[in-house]
Design a protein around this nucleic acid. Structure first.
Length: 210
DNA sequence: ACATTAATTGTGT
DNA sequence: ACACAATTAATGT
């Protein structure tokens, strides 16, 4: 991981210089640690977050009890939900939990609209964000609706490995079960099956992908 | 170093 | 899904 990536580094290719300047002037930088809750259900949004480094997982509350992982955000992403909230003054329908250490730049809500007309690159960025979030949502729905738990688990592990940039996923079976909204026993059994197939190596508190 | 407890994981019904 | 066994880590004495 690069400990000191700046907004300019991450977004240089996306925004024009003028806009970058404005951002670095106005943005409120917020550091977060693993497992910090950045946004919770029902919360109002105070700014638009631009992810500079780290990763965030977006969860949705299920109808009865429990939560479900929708998708991960990585550097250079923003939360489309937040933008919708800003424009409509709505409460958040999602919960954002830090996956690892990182940094967000919070943009004052008012700038959202101003930049929309002022900067082409901002407009494009917002639309792109919506689009890619939407696609991720679609595939999340596919996963839940059409795929079985073993496939979902595999994808989950792959995602984890990607965003943490490591072949070792440090999660207990319990936590995984929580993210996928299932029971721990199911995860344990599936993991063991995968281990027997030689796909992974099981240790206490972490899983090695092979 | 040892005993106790809690947390994690494995297995059978 | 539930119960329980087995294993390991954490804590106190």
């Amino acid at each position: 991981m690069n400990p000191k990536e700046t907004i300019a580094d991450v977004y240089a290719a996306v925004f024009e210089k003028e806009l970058l300047n404005e951002i670095s002037k106005l943005a409120l930088l917020i550091e977060f640690d693993e497992d910090d809750v950045l946004i919770d259900f029902g919360q109002f949004i105070k700014g638009i977050p631009l992810l500079v480094s780290g990763a965030i997982k977006i969860m949705r509350e299920d109808f009865d009890e429990g939560e479900l992982l929708l998708y991960f955000l990585e550097k250079g992403d923003t939360c489309a939900m937040t933008m919708a909230c800003c424009m409509g003054e709505k409460q958040s329908e999602i919960r954002a939990i830090a996956e690892n250490k990182g940094l967000v730049a919070m943009i004052p809500v008012g700038k959202m609209e101003e930049w929309m007309s002022k900067y082409k690159s901002w407009r494009a960025f917002v639309f792109n964000s919506y689009n890619s979030r939407f696609n991720e949502l679609l595939s999340a729905i596919d996963n839940i609706a059409f795929k079985h738990m073993d496939q979902r688990l595999e994808e989950y592990l792959n995602e984890k490995s990607k965003i943490n940039d490591s072949n070792v996923v440090t999660q207990t079976h319990q936590q995984i079960a929580y993210d996928l909204n299932t029971s721990r026993v199911v995860i344990s059994r599936l993991l063991k099956a995968m281990e027997n197939e030689g796909k992974i190596k099981l240790n206490r508190n972490n899983i090695e992908l092979l």
